[in-house]
Design a protein around this nucleic acid. Structure first.
Lengths: 229, 229, 229, 229
DNA sequence: AATGAATGAGAGTTCATTCAT
DNA sequence: GATGAATGAACTCTCATTCAT
């Protein structure tokens, strides 16, 4: 029967398996990643796998759960580094992209998950969206962003992050390079453009000028990057 | 050998196979959809499949190609219905979501495609992005939107559309209903919120006020939906 | 139903099929040669095949039959060119190797035939052996060769021819070249050595010295076994 | 992944599979022998096969390798029993035929091998030829046989052995019996005739008369080619 | 706790053959 | 006479999972 490891050795073995699974999933996706390839990578026998996971699906769910926890941590750690709303947004995305670059499995596995573990996938997205929503709701109350529906906006942000991450982190820099050689993270100007896109979308109020802002602000708001630089 | 059908009957059979494949892919995803399930659905023998497709992958690529062509048509048909920039954006998205609702296979199969046919998947996204970019570049030149990088914005739009489509078209209306019972399309208020989000992000200039716009415009620009309605 | 062609056109089609089959069998062997590959090569539809052959096996048998007839003709034509026993032997082999070089299918198909059409294969070998036996029997009666069992000798000759043909006609000249690039025929010195081997084996009496040779020698040389025992 | 067995049980299973394969190959040939027939005979599940062999071809190559090693052992063991050159030749052939009778798979599989594993087949023949060549070269140096090209002679011997083995060991005694009921070995008189054929061909010097034989005769007989030219 | 041999269902694919046109 | 679409059995191979050691 599958159970939590009861010894130090057992814990180590389970950790090795999870790490191996992350690698193999990142390389091949869920379906193509066979238990035998995972145990091979983890350097344990095939039977050992079933000491810690009830099935391949169980492993998958544990892994998604784990990655989800960590990516949200990366995002909120990032956001916490920002000293105002705009910076928090910016750093939250930075955290997200950095995590994506380090853990391509997250992205790759989640996009395959609808057919494998729909519940796990919805969970994954919903928890991230929840985080966004909280932030947006607070920001709205504080008048830091426009009067928007936080839920819809949160899903939209999710989409922007995923697509930009896919395109600029996971795909090669050039149009025709081989896969898997993704940059460490999103190129700076793309990142800036994207943040500007998002801040316009949210109507994020530029921090220093909140009060003074004259009519010309319209333009300024539309291209906050200029001022950030 | 696989070849194009040479008779009416053959053409019909190939069409039956493609339609069956779309259904089965939509229900089960690419990996889980077996050839035998597809031929069963199409009511032909398994061997018949290989008269028209060299492999499961070949079928996949033909299907993605086909769906891609059609979704782009749906989007540009939609955009063409709009009589100004803002409406074109709006209707383009409407076309996209309507297509998504009618052809969930597109979405489901594409998200699985990185591990199956990375080339086909990049192609799919890139062609749509190209369409967006053209539109954005023209709009920028015409002063209808803010001064943005059309490529980054295009990818961001792609993400917004995909995620909103996934959440509101393909998932059940309630938080816990069974899958596959997606709404016919995005709920109206979500659609409006999303369009507003996008138009703020792009700095889409509201049609009537282009010249006169005073300072208060800021708010107006941020919630153009109100005025459109 | 399969039947002999009744028209000029039909005869032509059947001939095209036989020629294509010979080529494809030579390249891929019987098992790997599919009907569809053969009809493709012959540029006829698959169904056409069954107008002239009852089955793949039927084709095989007709082809072996055909090649057998022709290789025997090549051998006896060769033998007929020789003006004495030794030369006849020599030229018979020459005919055999020339045929092998031009029709590698014979060799390749026959060696696979035991599991496909054992009767056809035995037939093939036996008819050739019969030819040898007749010649040997006559030669023995004429005192041109030693006192041997024609049947055993015939099979042995068959083996020498097949193996030398395989090695020096069908395999590349060098030890490591690619297959299928066989020389046009056996290299001259190999041919000479082989003929000498055979003529010693048969005790073929050299033409010019027939009279001069001391009688005792002849017998002793031709039947060393007697002395061994 | 295929790997060497790591336990006694595994070794046993692999051995069972090889033995079953030899039987099935002997009965049906390589192409017709399906994995399922082999595993059935070995009384293991189909999947088990792939624990020990990467593919049907891999099995084939291992089997040919194995049989090749053993047939060469049988031949040289036989030859070693002979107390002089002529006897060694004789006993070598006897070993070969005995092996053929016991392991018809060798013969059947090798003759099919050109289309399956050309490299394995050439290897098989070449290694045997090498053995012959060594023996012939030594015998020539010792003046025990005529002045021949050892390579050509070796291939010729190979052919004689294969064809006589096929005809008299593997085919039924009578002209029309069913296949697979081969005699235990070559009938004695056929064997004697064949050995005599070979010894004449090689010009093997009869042991007792080595000294007495008039020198000139010996040479003349051994190299009739010179006189033909 | 760990091993690795064993399982058998099920996958994608090929092919000789049939038959309506 | 010729076509080519259709068939379905059979093939090789993979894989998640079980279990004796």
């Amino acid at each position: 029967m599958t159970a939590e490891p009861r010894t130090k050795r057992g814990e180590l073995t389970k950790a090795k398996l999870l790490a191996a699974a992350e690698q193999v999933f990142a390389e091949q996706g869920y379906q193509a990643a066979s238990i035998s390839r995972i145990t091979e990578r983890a350097r344990v026998a095939q039977g050992t796998f079933y000491l810690y996971f009830a099935s391949k699906l169980d492993l998958f769910e544990q892994l998604v759960e784990d990655l989800n926890r960590r990516v949200r941590a990366a995002m909120s750690d990032g956001a916490a580094r920002g000293s105002n709303r705009a910076e928090a947004e910016r750093e939250g995305f930075r955290g997200f992209f950095a995590f994506t670059a380090e853990h391509p499995a997250l992205y790759r596995v989640v996009r395959e998950a609808e057919h494998v573990a729909p519940g796990a996938m919805r969970n994954h997205y919903e928890r991230i969206v929840e985080g966004y929503m909280e932030g947006l709701t607070r920001a709205k109350a504080a008048g830091e962003i426009a009067d928007i529906d936080p839920e819809v906006a949160a899903w939209a942000l999710m989409g922007v992050g995923e697509m930009i991450g896919m395109r600029y982190v996971l795909w090669p820099t050039a149009e025709d390079g081989p896969y898997g050689t993704g940059a460490t993270t999103v190129p700076e100007h793309v990142f800036d453009e994207m943040v500007a896109f998002v801040q316009r979308a949210l109507g994020t109020v530029p921090p220093h000028h909140t009060v003074a802002a004259p009519a010309t602000d319209d333009v300024a708001t539309a291209t906050p990057t200029k001022e950030d630089a």
